[in-house]
């Protein structure tokens, strides 16, 4: 975005040589930049907090700009994956700053709220945006959050699945409140990461 035009050039130019940005380190210990995108109030920050700290705070703060957290998980094949998670602000105008954070990300998790069709539309906007401007080999995950609010559901599981399939995404419904599928989401992402060929 704004800052992209001069700076990132350098960053990405250099990243190829010394420090591959997408995933790094050796074949046993992966490092992954992950960005969360989606409409305001769908629970992006809650998902991260649930995953990283195991907490859920129903009265969480508005995210201004973006916030960062990291978490390492161990997989069954004894590899570890360190997620460097950028949690972005949801309001539409902050989309102007989003490229700053999704640029160079290996994974984008696009979140919508199953009780809001607006947020599902917004998720589709993000998918398109990333297909256009994200890294070409970015892993996209579509997440329907607030799955505990079944009675208020507006977006069916089928809608989510179909859209995800059409766009070659991985789809899951989660609940940060009940911790449902939160770890599964990140484990699944970890499994899909390209492994650096051990040299």
């Amino acid at each position: 975005m704004g800052c992209s035009s001069s700076v990132p050039d350098r960053a990405s130019g250099r990243s190829g040589g010394l420090n591959p940005e997408n995933s790094a380190a050796d074949s046993k210990n992966l490092r992954v930049k992950l960005v969360l995108l989606g409409d305001s109030g769908v629970g992006k920050s809650c998902i991260v907090l649930r995953f990283v700290r195991g907490q859920f705070d129903p009265t969480s703060k508005v995210t201004v700009g973006a916030s960062f957290l990291s978490q390492t998980i161990a997989l069954q094949d004894s590899t570890t994956v360190k997620f460097e998670i950028w949690d972005t602000a949801g309001q539409e105008r902050y989309a102007a700053l989003a490229p700053l954070y999704y640029r160079g990300a290996a994974v984008a998790v696009i979140v919508y709220d199953i009780t809001s069709s607006d947020s599902f539309a917004k998720a589709q906007y993000w998918v398109k945006e990333l297909q256009k401007h994200g890294s070409p080999d970015i892993i996209l995950a579509l997440v329907g959050n607030k799955a505990d609010l079944q009675e208020k559901r507006k977006v069916t599981v089928q809608d989510g699945t179909e859209y995800a399939e059409k766009n070659g995404m991985f789809f899951i419904e989660t609940s940060a409140k009940t911790a449902d599928n939160i770890n599964e989401l990140f484990e699944e992402i970890a499994k899909r990461l390209p492994r650096p060929t051990s040299s």
Binding site: C3, V7, P8, A11, E21, G65, A66, S67, F68, L100
Partner: peptide, 11 residues
Amino acid sequence: LGVQVAWFSGP
């Protein structure tokens, strides 16, 4: 490290 200044200065 691949860190952009705007990542933290923005917020």
